[in-house]
């Protein structure tokens, strides 16, 4: 039905890597062999982009997903995954300093988009396939915790206070383009 980038790439690799050479039997031929000097220098890395870009340009066909009602997605924030649907509250375990309350955030690192019957998975799905947006609802903290730290045979009790930050988002939009 739909072509996945990864599976395509794997097929391509399989086709190209299977080149078998017959074992050398006639050693007299070895003398006639010539070796050309490699154009790549020592420690030089070459990325063969011509073939990859052809594969990447081919966007997967997500029509079965588009016909479904509700979608879910696994979004990643600093490589921390959150499984969300539309209208969910996402609780980030830190203070998003650069975002104000009421700001709209666009997510572009998404691992999974799926519905009840279909899922589409990739390392990071091409952002041209979906729109996922969230609003910063509030910046709060957890209630203050006081932990008593004691040492053996010492009367002193140290009180460690913690009141960590939380940023709360609401997913306002989750759809395929």
């Amino acid at each position: 039905m739909h072509f996945f980038i990864r599976s395509l790439a794997r097929i391509q690799l399989r086709n190209t890597s299977r080149v078998f050479t017959s074992p050398i039997t006639n050693y007299s031929l070895l003398a006639n062999r010539t070796f050309s000097i490699s154009s790549t220098k020592y420690n030089q890395t070459i990325t063969n982009t011509t073939q990859d870009s052809k594969i990447l340009k081919q966007l997967p066909d997500l029509t079965p997903l588009k016909l479904e009602d509700d979608l879910y997605a696994v979004i990643k924030v600093h490589s921390n995954p959150f499984l969300v649907t539309e209208g969910d509250k996402v609780i980030l375990p830190y203070n998003l300093k650069h975002a104000q309350v009421g700001d709209v955030l666009n997510f572009n690192d998404v691992a999974v988009i799926g519905s009840r019957n279909y899922t589409f998975t990739d390392d990071s799905i091409d952002p041209s396939l979906y729109t996922i947006k969230a609003v910063v609802l509030e910046k709060t903290k957890l209630p203050m915790r006081i932990r008593e730290i004691t040492k053996r045979r010492q009367r002193k009790v140290r009180h460690a206070i913690s009141k960590p930050h939380r940023t709360i988002l609401r997913i306002t939009e989750l759809k395929l383009k």
């Binding site: 509700d70 649907t85 539309e86 209208g87 969910d88 509250k89 996402v90």
Partner: peptide
Amino acid sequence: VESINQSI
């Protein structure tokens, strides 16, 4: 994640 939606 806090949600009131049904599981998809």
